[in-house]
């Protein structure tokens, strides 16, 4: 009898240690990755990174054109993807909450949300790059927009569903048409959450490489022309990291550090927005 109790206690102790160990492994890994990013990337971080173009191998330079390219592509993707995402989310939460269409769209959207991004790149290659005959910034921006849409749809729907019905009833009772009660009342009530969705979408696409590889490709030079191939930070990191040149590799690390810091800042901002929204 006593042996059985001891056995159960031992099992419990072992499980506890394993759980602690697993958590330590998870946290340790995060620390390890961030640590080596800082270690390798911080040395190369200087003003010239932000003021000079990508260099040919063997000389010094910066990451100005890919940084600007990434900003342009991200802005384009948000400009295309956010309105579509917000409108679709609005339909699902407001007009067709109990529709068949809504449940189908929700299911499909969830699949798009985690679909492999490289497939999105292939899709845009087929419908934009191949017909146009050349790689372009437009194609890259649209490819990223395809990744923005599901994130925004999801958060918009979730946040609008949380808006209390009393607000909608009050708006209707003073004679506001449905569209105004949505845009003037519900959007305002759900604003923090919807902004969070856009921020999360930006965080997601700012590190995306796979869909850009064969849509916007890359450009060695200053390239603000959306009709031409455009440099972007992730693709430059990919190219430079796999190159045999030390200068390029160290620039790749610096670029990686910049992206990671930007993404972490975005997701922490998004989180604190949600937290402050909950307190109100």
């Amino acid at each position: 009898m006593a042996g059985r109790y001891a056995l159960r206690r031992h099992t419990n102790a072992i499980a506890t240690v394993l759980a602690l160990g697993a958590t330590a492994v998870g946290l340790g890994w995060l620390a390890l990755i961030l640590g080596s990013l800082l270690w390798h990337g911080f040395r190369g971080l200087s003003p010239t990174v932000f003021t000079q173009m990508t260099p040919p191998p063997g000389s010094s330079g910066g990451l100005l054109n890919p940084i600007v390219g990434s900003l342009i592509l991200t802005a384009l993707a948000v400009a295309i993807g956010t309105p579509i995402g917000i409108l679709a989310g609005t339909y699902m939460a407001e007009y067709g909450r109990y529709d068949r269409l809504t449940s189908v769209v929700r299911f499909i959207n969830d699949i798009l949300l985690s679909a492999p991004s490289i497939v999105v790149g292939l899709f845009i290659y087929e419908v934009m790059v191949a017909p146009m005959g050349h790689f372009s910034g437009w194609a890259g921006g649209v490819a990223l927009a395809v990744l923005v849409i599901p994130v925004v749809v999801r958060t918009t729907e979730d946040m609008l569903t949380l808006v209390p019905n009393a607000l909608r009833e009050a708006a209707t009772s003073i004679g506001l048409p449905r569209s105004l009660s949505i845009t003037r009342i519900c959007y305002r009530a759900a604003r923090a959450g919807m902004v969070t969705g856009v921020l999360l979408a930006v965080a997601r696409i700012s590190g995306e490489t796979a869909p850009l590889l064969f849509t916007s490709l890359n450009n060695q030079f200053w390239s603000p022309n959306l009709n031409a191939p455009m440099a972007s930070l992730p693709v430059v990191i990919f190219q430079f990291a796999l190159s045999p040149y030390k200068d390029w590799q160290s620039l790749a690390w610096t670029g990686a550090l910049i992206i990671t810091l930007a993404v972490l800042a975005l997701s922490i901002t998004a989180r604190s927005l949600v937290a402050s929204g909950k307190q109100q």
Partner: peptide, 28 residues
Amino acid sequence: LGDAVFRHLTRAAAVAVLLLLSGVIIAL
């Protein structure tokens, strides 16, 4: 009019999400 336009706009966007997935499949 604005109400109807907005309503159809949101519906069109929801349908666009469906078309996106079918577009991916068809293109592939």
